[in-house]
Design a protein around this nucleic acid. Structure first.
Lengths: 212, 212
DNA sequence: CGTGAACTTTATGGGTGTTAACTTGGCAGG
DNA sequence: CCTGCCAAGTTAACACCCATAAAGTTCACG
């Protein structure tokens, strides 16, 4: 495999998928085209059809790759959260850091971010993308919040929606939307305040009542 | 003006803008093309260049129109909130209704919604779209929350970001994103829980402390 | 009745997905 | 070691789509 230079590429499928992911990173999902990926790899457009049924198939592959990249980048950010201090504070800090990582990633890699989350998938109902890794990460954070008594256990099921929405929404407002032109200070302020709101919004447990 | 049928259309600019808005409604911003709008109006593509500098100019016009439509639709929804009961409860109900209206509109008119908010505007830094009407509406709701003592006055400045982000984010997750395939019950649940989180997240005032 | 704005035709030059038919060359089996 | 098969590539072409410019035509109005 990977026998570059030869007539038979040997790993074309992966090479095309990686190229597609790069295109997505710089130009968003719309930039993911069969011809573009083929061009990047230095191969004929039609060659791609040996490995992908059609353009949406290629997009799907690119999405999978970019999703992995995003999950990895976020994982690092969350792992970097200091593990000292009071358990409740730490759990909260970890949740905040998860959200911050999500938003920061969106700002640094808007193309990847859009590719991951603005599906706009075509008519054929495609298989629900199992569990986006960031989503799973959020779930863990919420579990921790239940353990330390910040979030009430009975509120745990389905608790992902709110925090996810808040962080996701702010990311998009900042990247693509009306909040795009904020300066650094304003942006940081918006982020921290949104995280404030999120943490406070999750405060339904006994420990939260006590802290108040 | 408006002399239809004649060689000189008389109101081409508006006609094209309306057509562009329709295209945006059904196909999102990507569907807004000079040729498409011209076709719709029954006129030659080049005619459009008498009224719009280029395609992005047309898009801008479409965005303005769709934005107006969105604001109007949301205004109705908010105005329909019952005005009875306790002041605090009413203020909260109005805030929730604003958010619900925003999300509902996004679900009913995804094309318009995307056109309004997923800028992805081109390189030339275009003039910041003053104040999107829904944003202004949110501001009023927050003012009311301060008046009734739910939101602390010192937290009022810049308080828009959080609620807007939450509602905006959920709308996008439901319309375009991974939450697209939820069934009705799940969707409603996600909406209400996100609104719960938002309201609780804003509870920094004296009245909120009392209610707890 | 002439002028000029509003519209037309015509054309250039680019992009895309996708199919059909041909070529190359690695590898398995005689 | 040769040979032939077939997967993995190729060239070529079809059929769309788009933005935009140059030059000609129409007609409303002063």
């Amino acid at each position: 495999m990977t026998s570059r230079g030869s007539y038979h590429h040997g790993d074309l499928r992966n090479a095309l998928a990686r190229a597609a992911a790069e295109l997505a990173a710089t130009g968003g999902p719309d930039a993911v085209t069969i011809r573009g990926a083929a061009r990047e790899v230095g191969v004929t457009p039609t060659a791609a059809y040996r490995h992908f049924a059609d353009q949406s198939d290629l997009l799907e592959a690119a999405r999978a790759l970019t999703m992995d990249g995003m999950a990895a980048a976020m994982g690092e950010l969350v792992a970097a959260v200091p593990a000292d201090g009071d358990a409740t504070e730490r759990a909260i800090a970890r949740l905040r850091s998860t959200g911050r990582g999500y938003i920061r990633f969106a700002l640094e890699e808007p193309g990847i971010f859009r590719t991951c989350f603005t599906g706009q998938l075509r008519f054929p109902s495609d298989p629900m993308p199992e569990d986006p890794a960031p989503y799973a990460l959020l779930g863990e954070m919420l579990d921790e919040l239940v353990e330390v008594g910040w979030l009430a256990p009975e509120d745990r099921p389905g608790a992902e929606a709110g925090p996810w929405a808040a962080v996701h929404g702010l990311a998009l407002l900042l990247v693509d939307g009306p909040l795009k032109d904020l300066d650094d200070a304003e942006r940081e302020d918006a982020i921290e305040r949104t995280l404030d709101l999120t943490v406070r919004g999750l405060a339904t447990g006994p420990e939260a009542r006590r802290a108040r």
